[in-house]
Amino acid sequence: MLNTIIVDDEEFARSSLYFLLQEHCEGIHISGIAKSVAEARTLLKNNAIDLIFLDIAMPGENGFELIPDVREYHSHVIFTTAYDQYALRAIKANALDYLLKPIDIDELKVAVEKAEKYISLNKMENSRADRLQNLAQNLAEKTEIRKISLPNGQGYSLVSIDDIIHIAADSNYSVFHLSNGDTITVSKVLKEYEELLPDHQFVRIHKSSILNLNYLKEYNSKNGMEVILKNGEKIAVSRRRASEFAEKIKSYTRIHGDQ
């Protein structure tokens, strides 16, 4: 649902648009109605508004004077006016659409559908940007990460990184093997966790394996290099990662001694 406000100084125009939206646009939730730009500012300040149906020619401040506030609160505008000479200026104000009064029902439906698609995509992009920003922050502080949240199908499991024995790739999924014997399968590729987890403790030993060095018991090269974990599991080390693995072992040993 798009949280929407109607801004128009004419009572008939406000009520007409309200009933058209209620009757023909299921995806619209009308959060308020304003008779002026000043009232619209108050609604924007106190509500999360996705979409504004905004009249242009109003006494006092005209609709264009609300645009800075629209941008500040990340809302979007469909202009409604009886005067088509404003069309070019509406385009420059980045309006989603421009409807002439009396408003045609079909044109209104098209405008709302366009707004729903645009705003939904915009929210997805903002959400993606937020996730990337959070990931970047985690990467910058990855030596400090001690817990990660993993989606478990019903919610999220908060897992201490010290409880992760190893992570195995399964196509586009990552399977976490935990010290209590549980496994959690996550719909993310192994690369994301390779970048996220602290590299002094975790090492990619194969295209399909990340190992927590705290659980390493021994490693050998009897049948190609492999590691043996404290729980008895054996995992292959790929040739291309063998030298990197050896360097990690040296660094890990210097930090942890003979633990």
Rank of each mutant, 00 (worst) to 15 (best):
I228A: 04
I5D: 04
K250M: 15
I28S: 10
G153W: 02
A111N: 05
I119A: 06
K207D: 08
R239L: 00
N3Y: 02
S221M: 13
Q154E: 15
N180M: 10
S127W: 06
S15C: 12
V189A: 15
N126V: 08
R14W: 04
A95S: 14
Q201H: 14
L178Y: 12
L88P: 12
I161Q: 00
I33R: 11
K123V: 13
I210S: 08
S157R: 07
A48V: 02
I30Q: 08
E247A: 12
L66V: 01
K114H: 10
K217P: 03
Y83P: 11
I235S: 00
N3G: 06
I210H: 04
I249D: 00
Y193S: 03
F53E: 08
Y252G: 01
T253R: 02
V175N: 09
V186Y: 05
D97W: 07
P59R: 09
I235M: 04
H24W: 09
Q133V: 13
L132E: 13
N134Y: 00
I33H: 09
N47M: 12
M58Y: 03
S209C: 14
F245T: 06
K188P: 12
L139W: 14
A169V: 09
E113D: 12
D69N: 06
S238M: 00
K188W: 01
R254Y: 13
L108D: 05
S149T: 15
K101L: 06
K188Y: 10
E10M: 05
E23V: 06
P102Q: 03
N172S: 14
K35S: 09
K147L: 08
K101T: 00
N172M: 06
L229P: 04
Y252P: 04
A136N: 07
A95E: 09
L20M: 14
L100D: 13
K248V: 01
E233T: 01
Q133D: 10
D182E: 10
C25I: 13
F64I: 00
R128T: 10
K142W: 06
K142I: 03
S209W: 03
D162S: 10
D106Q: 15
A140C: 05
R41T: 09
K188T: 07
Y83K: 07
K114P: 04
S221E: 14
E226H: 00
V175R: 05
E26K: 14
L150Y: 04
S209F: 11
I49S: 13
Q22L: 12
I228R: 05
C25K: 10
T80N: 11
L178D: 08
D8N: 02
D130F: 07
T42M: 07
I91C: 05
D130N: 15
D199S: 03
A57G: 08
K188C: 09
A111S: 15
A242I: 02
N220G: 05
D106N: 15
L20A: 06
E244K: 12
T80G: 10
D55M: 02
G257A: 07
L17K: 08
H166T: 07
L66D: 00
Y156I: 15
E23W: 02
G32D: 13
Y98C: 02
Y73A: 08
N126G: 12
V7W: 03
D182M: 08
P102E: 05
S157D: 15
H24R: 05
V186E: 08
T185C: 11
